[in-house]
């Protein structure tokens, strides 16, 4: 479904923050990216979604090279990001935020499929139906996260990238959101989730990447990643989660502090 290889990206005129990162998400998979805050998870998510240009490398989605495609084009092709911090239109109503999410649907069947998707979204998050006429900015953090996910779902995504969905939310809500994601995955949606809460993320994932700062040679890194991909981490296995936090699974492409200093 998604194959990204050798991604390099950074902010402004600054140095590369991603160092030849490789990410692969297979169809129907739910893949987690775990790591500490600032490890580069969001940078990967943003680069995959096109919010941050890839300085080198390739992003192939469904066989099409989208490396140079704009964010909105990727979204229209079904590669959809639920960005960190939700990025809602605060003064617009919940219903209007969800309406914007229907833009990727083909025009001819937009009305019908928007209604279907809205039904699904309301079933997943009943609170949103109740609050549909309220400004999105007036909702609680958890409800806003629901709006952000729901907005992405309105456009019938094929790959959903969730960037830190649990940030600042009560544990109960976080669990609810992950249950929803699992359910969507069960219905065939591919998911890539960047999550600080490793235990939670891995418990719902079929595979995981561990991303952190570290000075590891390129060859080493590639082999690490390959082994990680091959082995994978099957969800609901507490031991495997612990194993993942070991330095063995170190990183995916974060420039070392020395490299930055240079």
């Amino acid at each position: 479904m998604l194959e990204a290889h050798g991604l390099r990206a950074g902010y402004g005129k600054g140095p590369d923050v991603l160092l030849d990162a490789d990410v692969v998400v297979g169809t129907g998979e739910i893949v987690a990216m775990i790591g500490l805050n600032g490890a580069g998870k969001s940078t990967i998510a943003r680069t995959l979604a096109g919010l941050l240009p890839a300085r080198s490398g390739r992003i192939v989605f469904d066989g099409d090279d989208l490396t140079r495609a704009t964010t909105d084009e990727r979204a229209r092709r079904g590669l959809m990001l639920v960005p960190e911090g939700r990025e809602l239109c605060a003064s617009m109503t919940v219903a209007e935020n969800l309406a914007v999410g229907t833009v990727p649907l083909p025009r001819a069947e937009r009305r019908r499929r928007a209604a279907e998707n809205l039904g699904l979204v309301h079933e997943l998050f009943p609170i949103l139906e109740e609050k549909r006429r309220q400004p999105a900015g007036s909702l609680s953090g958890g409800q806003q996260q629901m709006v952000a996910i729901a907005r992405a779902l309105m456009g019938s995504p094929r790959l959903l990238i969730l960037d830190e969905p649990s940030l600042g939310l009560a544990p109960l809500l976080v669990r609810e959101i992950f249950q929803v994601v699992s359910r969507l995955n069960g219905d065939g949606l591919s998911v890539l989730v960047a999550e600080q809460n490793a235990a939670l993320a891995i418990s719902h994932s079929s595979q995981a990447y561990h991303i952190e700062l570290g000075a590891v040679s390129t060859t080493d890194a590639t082999s690490e990643q390959r082994s990680l991909l091959k082995g994978g981490v099957v969800g609901d296995d507490r031991d495997e989660v612990v194993a993942l936090q070991l330095p063995d699974y170190r990183w995916m492409g974060r420039r070392s502090p020395e490299a930055v200093a240079r």
Partner: peptide
Amino acid sequence: TLTGVSLRAVGLNRTAAAVSGVRVS
């Protein structure tokens, strides 16, 4: 209209509009 609501979204939060597939430009 969807175009109008999308245009408001562009003005309010360009990232929101872009990740939703709105042709911002």
